[in-house]
Structure formats: C-alpha cells, structure tokens
Computed example of a mutant assay.
Amino acid sequence: MSITDVTGGTPAAFGASAKPVPARGPDASTSGTAAPATGRGGAVDTVTLSREAVRAMKAGTISFTVPMADGAAAKDPVAAGMDAVLARRDYDLKQADYMREAMGMLRQTLNLPEDQPIFLGGAAHGLLEKLAAKNGLSRPEMPDALRAAGVKDPFAEDAGAEAGVIGVGMPNSGKELQVVFDRLGLAGRSAKTDDPLRMIALKDGNDHGGPLLGAIKGGTLGRLTDTRPGQGASLWAVTDEGEGPNARVLASVRSVGMDGVATDLAAGLLKGLKGLFAGS
C-alpha cells in the first residue's frame, strides 16, 4: 500500500499557529496509561487503562467488591478480599508478560524500532490479540475471583470498536505521530484493491479541508482523533478517492514535530494494518 500526499508538501500547523508542545493523546483526560513496560532493547510500550482504573490510581486506592455468595466469604470477608487482591496481582503480572511479548510481535509486523514508544487504543487492541493468537500467544484468562468481584477486561470492549489508533513517538523529545483508522473501511479495502490512498493536509486555505475535517469529527474516527487546533500539530485525512465529494476517509494522521516523516510512516503503519486485516 502506498500513500500519495496530494497537497504537495508539509502542511502548515493545523489551525492557529502556536509554539509546539507535546500533544495530548486521545481521551487523555480519562483513559490514562499503565506503567511503561520495558521490552526488548529498552523499548517502552504504553497501553490504555479503563476510566475506572485511572480514577482509582488518582485516588491512591484500588478496591474490590468481595462476593458474599458462600458461607466462607460471609464468615471471613477479610480472607476473601485478600484472595481477590492476590488473584489481581497474579493476573496483572501475567497480563504484563503477555503485552510485552505481543507488542514485540507488533513491532516486527509494523517494522517499528525497539526504542520507539508505541501507544494503542480502540480496535488496535483487537488486532494485537489476533496477531498474538496467530503466533501461538494467548491472553491470560481472568481468575474467577476477579470475575465474581465484577472486574472486567479493560480491553474487551475496545477490541471490537469501529476505530482504532496507533501512535508512535521519538524518545525524550515530545514528538509523536498518531494514526487513527476505520477498522471496517480498512478491512474491506484490504480484500479488494491495492490502489494508493490519498493523504490530504487539513490546513488553512485548503478548500477541501473543511468537509474532510467535518467527516472526521462526525464519523467513526472522531472519538479518537485529536482535532484541537494549534499546539504546533499538523493533521491529514487519508482517503480512497482523493479530495472529491465521494471520498471516504479511512484514517486520520496527526503529527507533532514529525511532519517530515509523516507520509512515509503513516504509509508503513497502514500497510502493516492492511496485512493484519487480510490475515484475520
């Protein structure tokens, strides 16, 4: 898959000009991140947490609802609660090992350097799980004690989402690039054509920028695409039919300080995603 930048170069900063600052990721006010997991070669991978987990972390406490279905729990709720805490600790350790191995597979598939931080959200979690399963790696089963306590897999709902996001960054620089993709649109395209996609800069003075930006905000990609103006960020729409009225926006690309490599990097990520969809 190739992407043609039909706007002829790097766009001006999206919206009002502003001093570049590190971009805030999708749903950053509520999603949060887990403690970085150091992978091979010192790589740092980041995964999103559920809103409930973030609130618990900010409050400095994580609580469990202890089920009282049997007599043992009723007689000794402290012991039952400790069982849940220990089960959670064991589950989290297994989950961390799983994510470390799965993210290593994703790096190889998308040809990403091991020292480049990665951020995942939405349907990207589902693709990660499919890639891991294809390579014989299964996600740890949640212990019965946690299920009984009402604990849910924070990635289960995201895995089937209509849109996903993969973000990459440059270590210790504040520079990052986020690609938000339409899962169904990209999956459908992967089985039909190898025609190049078009990457259109959404910048001031571009007559086609308004409708494409509106399509992003009001469509599948809107929840995960950071469309705030300024911040030194640049924004593109990736379409299958150029800039015309029939163009379908399959992805959005947002860059902070990575405009020079945005087209090539986005093309590589989308090509890798297409391969994952074709093999799923």
Rank of each mutant, 00 (worst) to 15 (best):
P229N: 13
E114S: 04
Q95V: 13
M258H: 03
V78M: 09
A251P: 03
A96V: 11
R254G: 01
M57G: 07
P196N: 10
S2K: 09
P143N: 01
M199I: 11
R139I: 10
D92H: 12
R183I: 05
L273H: 02
I118D: 00
T225N: 01
T61D: 01
V165I: 11
L120S: 04
G25H: 00
G121S: 05
A74M: 11
A191S: 09
L86W: 05
R147L: 07
M57K: 10
V253L: 15
R228I: 06
M170V: 11
M142D: 02
I3P: 06
G41L: 13
A34P: 07
R223S: 06
A79H: 12
L212Y: 04
L269Y: 02
D97V: 15
D153L: 12
L276C: 10
M105Q: 15
Q231F: 13
K203A: 06
K94M: 13
T30C: 06
R89I: 14
T48W: 10
L269G: 00
G150W: 14
V54L: 10
A124Q: 05
P67G: 14
G260T: 11
K175Y: 08
A23Q: 08
H208P: 08
G169A: 07
R248C: 03
L270C: 03
V151R: 01
R88K: 12
S31D: 09
A201W: 02
N172C: 09
V168N: 05
I118V: 02
T65A: 14
A13V: 05
G260R: 15
G205N: 10
K75D: 13
P140L: 08
A69M: 15
D144P: 00
G169F: 00
F181V: 06
L131G: 05
K134W: 02
H125R: 05
L137P: 03
V249T: 04
T10L: 15
G218Y: 09
A96Y: 05
P113V: 06
G136E: 07
R107P: 11
V54G: 02
P229Y: 13
D144C: 04
